[in-house]
Design a protein around this nucleic acid. Sequence first.
DNA 1: ACTGACATGATGTCCAGCCG
DNA 2: CGGCTGGACATCATGTCAGT
Length: 226
Amino acid sequence: MRLEEVFDKLPKLYNKPFSELKLEEDISGFSINKGNTGQFLQALLDMPNNSDLTDFDDGELKTNKTRIDGTPDQTMFITQISRDFDSLFFEDLESNRLLDKISNLLYLPVVKPVGSDPEDWYFLPAHHIDSRNNEVLKNLYLQDFLTIKEKVLDDLENSSDGFIHTANGKYIQIRSKDSMKKDGTYNPIYSQKLGREVSNKNHAFYFKRQFMLAVQSGEIPSNIIL
DNA sequence: ACTGACATGATGTCCAGCCG
DNA sequence: CGGCTGGACATCATGTCAGT
């Protein structure tokens, strides 16, 4: 399914508590908790619920918690680094997995008031952020990636432990993202190219709050789907 | 070929401590 | 004190692999 195909279905989802949406779409059996707002949205949009992990053929669907006033509350996860480290940071690619993944985004803020029941959460209008024919935006993403890459390469040489650490662009960052296994260990990132571990934990790319704020303010161009 | 354990990946959130 | 930093947890889907 292509990203544009869900535009028609979006407006009727805005500002209604999830409990109401569940009844309207007859998916009342769906249980919502912190892990599956995205799946809930996919069900509402009649998106294929099967094995394909990429949300759309040509883009990504993203939800992110906001406060009542619509301002973002957290960074927004993009993708993990893990085994891709060498190709991301040692190959000189015009585009890479990160830039491909964020090239065409459908972003929905979800209001989840502190202490509220998931039944009371609701969506705000979606932003379509398409960099594919926008050189300015494409370049902005690329510059952020290059800023991060520079810090990563610097950390590998100069950080006290030789590991990578949080690296910030203007809108994108990398930072750790991992969980402890039963045996108490994590999932280090190993570089074939360097022949050693480059971190003691997995890391991931995130959009900083600043990105969502810039989208909402119009500083980053997006179409609001109404 | 089936099954179940386990690892990995994707998605999303929580939070303690630090700092301006 | 609010936002950032850095680490961590929760949940679900899928991939892998050994035992049967």
